[in-house]
Design a protein around this nucleic acid. Structure first.
Length: 853
RNA sequence: GCCCGGGUGGCGGAAUGGCAGACGCAACGGACUUAAAAUCCGUUGUCCCUUAUACGGACGUGGGGGUUCGAGUCCCCCCCCGGGUACCA
């Protein structure tokens, strides 16, 4: 073979065409092979095109897929488009271009870019959430949830964003501003569709335990669900025939409750407010209602409130304690009322200090713990400081059989709950932070609801044969203004006549949020063309659950929680066979761009930077700059477009670099110069195959060892997603074999196979050059032989007191006694040890000897 | 504040409790070349000793302490950076 250039452009085009024409990666619905379902979080096809973060996850999944195929698995690896969403709609508002046109264009561009990377997707299974054949079934799933009683209409204070003309979900509001655009958000009551995700709180929490996800992500979901346990108990209102129920996680602190706070929205506020406090309370309620989301959540959390004039009776000691209203008690959590224990709750403590309410310490702090936290025990005991840590109860007994003095916090909790239950004034209770899911949006570009509001006031759920409810064509994409979506302007579409009864109604004008389509897309991939059903249950049984799911950490909570919720409902309905959808989840880390700043920390756009001798200077001022990683952004001009990298180095180098940068889950900076390294590696690999004599000579000991080490390392690293170190090992292989003039064919073929999941185009071409006619996509993955990894002699380090002194070559099988003998007889060691008594010798077989003197 | 990650050469990163810095980038020196590109070879943690790139020594994985024959790795405390969350009783 003659040496030829590594012409990646030709090679990549050739094989992408080959795979496409031969449908190399078409996945059969069923097979005797072990199934393996690998899912990428499908992208929203934005106008900006692909950025280097997308291919990171896609490359990782593609490597696993190609590897699994070579290990004999039937692999499902699909791709699609999460194509409903706000940007296309906003573009429509600005330009009048229909979102479907924008979406089509963007999708085609995304697809071109993704295909250019040579991923082994089964494109026959491509889906888009905006296709009516797809969203028909999204609507159908809504029908199933509705029928199960999990969907309801409610008048709720929602996050209304006047600038966007729409309601936002809690998670779309960041620091009181809209996530998109940063506009002000206020609270406004509106009729909204809600999902009772709270009914599934416990199942969603418990299900996490069986999942192979990173602990961090699971913890984030647990925190979001926010389970707590404690007690619900009643406080009698003095002078009224009313009781106020409170929820507390600290029933043990009842003796320290010196006042009560109810939320300004609490239903008893008006009833129990006395005449002389009415004006003050009314003013406070108005103040609280007017507050924007920003003010409520802002860091300036100075406590405010008003006294109602009424008192409650503390059930453990019959003390009269004042009832206040304050916005730090939320109506939406627990019972909207609390017992305040200022001595042992920091919020209550702040409030009590501000309004000079009594503070009664009932826990003697654990002294060591107080010392660590630098809080004076004396101040705590005198009510001058707050203690929310551990300790022993004091001043906590009554004449009716409750005495928890001397008990630790946990024991006293249990004892108090028991007492409350015996006395019939309270009981054990569990609460969740998780709220019901606000599921409607006042937008055009989303799935319409399969719902009609009949003129007689009845809410009609459409029959399956009336689906899909198609999105009507409109010209005006602006929200109607009153809070309704642009669909309210589609007059013909709005009118509905019941096909059987002839009764009239108006269609629901809300549309579903973007989360809807992504809640079940992994199920549709299994049976994407099914016109009669959302999916075939036999196929579902074969493919589910998803074995590996890779995507960005920004979806750690919401998408993954919503999808799990739908899946669990579908499971309870018998529509899917697994209780969880995603068995293993990995979040790839964000890829940052390289940025530059001057001595004052001012950021300099990358196109204003020049590099000399490894240092960086401003083109404008000549000042020396410091390189550092920062989030890619248009303004810093540090966005890397995969197209440019592919043009310069090829898709295979792009894929290799994405993986070589560092661990998949780590945040890491992109450095285009680094692509050079993997590109050189590919060129060396290419030269080894094309520029050397490939023959049937046998390998020497060293070559066998390197080859089998490489097989072992690459195999194990793919299994554990350590792609960066797998590539390092292949580089070591090339550094060893690349310098030979004659390459053993076995080694060359093994190497090409190992390389193929990472750099599939180059590998296919090399495979062909080695004389094979068929694609190597389904070739058998090489196996290593433990025999060849064994070495005759290993280097063993001899240390004295942990300091390396010398090295000896001995058999790895040498016993500890032999090692000790050889080590002590070594001349360097004898020299060093002169006279000193040897106290102990530690021998680690095949590794080291440590002599303690 | 709380909960998760993380801190290792000039840079990205590697290291079952056992020689820290694999592999790569950058830099420097050299070979090839009319020259450049490409390619190949070599050097590259800091400091000390030194005629020296020898020999040898000390220090070194954010800081301090501990366990151990031995710690980047295990334990305790602290600092810094990134992400999530926020009055959830």
């Amino acid at each position: 073979m003659n040496e030829r250039d590594y012409k990646f452009k030709e090679i990549e085009k050739k094989w992408q065409t080959h795979w496409e024409e031969n449908k190399t990666f078409k996945t059969p619905d069923f097979s005797d092979k072990q199934k393996y379902y690998v899912l990428d979080m499908f992208p929203y096809p934005s106008g900006a095109g692909l950025h280097v973060g997308h291919p990171e996850g896609y490359t990782a999944t593609d490597i696993v897929c190609r590897y699994k195929r070579m290990r004999g698995c039937n692999v499902l690896h699909p791709m699609g488009w999460d194509a409903f969403g706000l940007p296309a709609e906003q573009y429509a508002v600005e330009t009048g271009t229909h979102p479907s046109i924008t979406t089509k264009k963007n999708t085609e561009e995304f697809k071109r870019q993704i295909k250019a990377l040579g991923f082994s997707y089964d494109w026959d299974r491509e889906i888009s959430t905006t296709d009516k054949e797809y969203y028909k079934w999204t609507q159908w799933i809504f029908v199933q949830l509705y029928k199960k009683g999990l969907a309801y209409l409610d008048e709720v204070p929602v996050n209304w964003c006047p600038a966007l003309g729409t309601v936002l979900a809690n998670e779309e509001v960041i620091d009181g501003k809209s996530e998109r655009g940063g506009h002000d958000v206020i609270r406004k009551p509106m009729k909204q569709w809600m999902f009772k995700i709270t009914e599934y709180a416990e199942k969603l929490l418990a299900g996490l335990d069986e999942l192979d996800w990173s602990e961090g992500i699971k913890e984030m979901q647990r925190n979001w669900i926010g389970k707590s346990t404690g007690a619900n108990l009643f406080f009698q209102v003095a002078g009224f025939n009313e009781r106020i129920e409170v929820y507390t996680t600290r029933p043990d602190t009842l003796f320290g409750a010196t006042y009560m706070v109810i939320s300004p929205e609490h239903k008893l506020v008006h009833k129990i407010t006395t005449k002389d406090h009415k004006s003050e309370v009314d003013a406070y309620i108005e103040h609280a209602a007017k507050m924007s989301e920003l003010e409520r959540t802002s860091l300036n959390q100075e406590k405010t409130g008003a006294f109602t004039g009424s008192y409650a009776i503390n059930p453990v000691n019959n003390e009269k304690i004042p009832i206040w209203i304050a916005d730090y008690v939320l109506i939406s959590y627990g019972t909207g009322a609390i017992m305040a224990v200022p001595a042992h709750d920091t919020r209550d403590f702040e409030f009590a200090q501000k309004f000079s309410l009594p503070i009664k310490c009932i826990i003697a702090p654990e002294e060591k713990e107080a010392e660590v936290k630098k809080i004076s025990v004396e101040e705590i005991l005198n009510g001058k400081a707050c203690w929310d840590g551990n300790g022993k109860m004091i001043h906590s007994s009554n004449e009716r059989g409750l005495n928890i003095n001397g008990l630790e916090v946990n024991d006293s909790k249990a004892r108090t709950i028991q007492w409350l239950e015996e006395m019939g004034i309270g009981k054990r209770a569990t609460n969740y932070k998780l709220r019901d899911w606000l599921f409607s949006r006042q937008r055009y570009w989303g799935e319409p609801f399969p719902i009609v509001h009949m003129d007689d006031g009845i809410i009609k759920l459409l029959d399956e044969n009336e689906l899909p409810v198609l999105l009507p064509n409109v010209d005006n994409f602006k929200p109607s203004g009153g809070g309704e979506s642009p669909l309210a302007n589609a007059e013909d579409w709005l009118k509905y006549v019941d096909p059987t009864t002839g009764k009239k109604g108006r269609r629901e004008t809300n549309t579903m949020p973007q989360w809807a389509g992504s809640c079940w897309y992994y199920l549709r991939y299994i049976d994407p063309l099914n016109a009669d059903k959302a999916w075939d249950s036999k196929k579902e049984k074969y493919w589910m659950p998803v074995d590996l799911y890779i995507g960005g950490a920004e979806h750690a909570v919401l998408h993954l929680l919503y999808a799990r919720f739908w899946h669990k409902v579908l499971f309870d309905l018998g529509l899917v066979s697994t209780s969880e959808p995603f068995k293993k989840l990995i979040n790839q880390g964000m890829i940052l761009g390289l940025s530059y700043k001057d001595a004052r920390g001012v950021l300099v756009p990358s196109d204003k930077v020049e590099s000399r001798d490894g240092n960086f200077y401003s083109k404008d001022t000549g000042e020396e700059l410091v390189e550092f990683p920062a989030k890619m952004s248009k303004s810093l001009k540090n966005v890397v477009n995969p197209d440019d990298i592919i043009a310069q180095y090829g898709a295979d180098s792009m894929r290799l670099y994405e993986m070589f940068m560092g661990p998949l889950e780590a945040v890491k900076p992109w450095n285009t110069a680094g692509v050079e390294g993997v590109y050189r590696f590919l060129k060396k690999s290419w030269r080894m195959i094309t520029g050397s004599e490939i023959s049937n000579i046998s390998m020497n000991r060293k070559q066998l060892a390197v080859l089998h080490q490489t097989i072992k390392k690459v195999t194990e690293d793919i299994e554990t997603f350590g792609f960066n170190t797998a590539i390092s090992q292949m580089m070591i292989f090339i550094n060893e074999f690349g310098k030979e003039d004659e390459i053993p064919k076995e080694a060359a073929e093994c190497f090409v196979k190992l390389l193929s999941p990472f750099a599939p185009h180059a590998a296919e071409e090399m495979w062909e050059l080695l004389g094979h006619k068929e694609t190597l996509a389904y070739e058998k993955w090489p196996e290593y032989n433990e025999e060849y990894l064994k070495e005759d002699e290993v280097e063993v380090l001899i240390q004295i007191l942990g300091k390396p002194k010398t090295k000896i070559m001995i058999s790895p099988e040498a016993s500890e006694i032999e090692m000790k003998k050889i080590a002590l007889a070594n001349s360097v060691i004898m020299e060093d040890l002169k006279g000193k008594p040897v106290r102990k010798v530690i021998c680690v077989k095949g590794r080291l000897v440590n002599i303690v003197v």
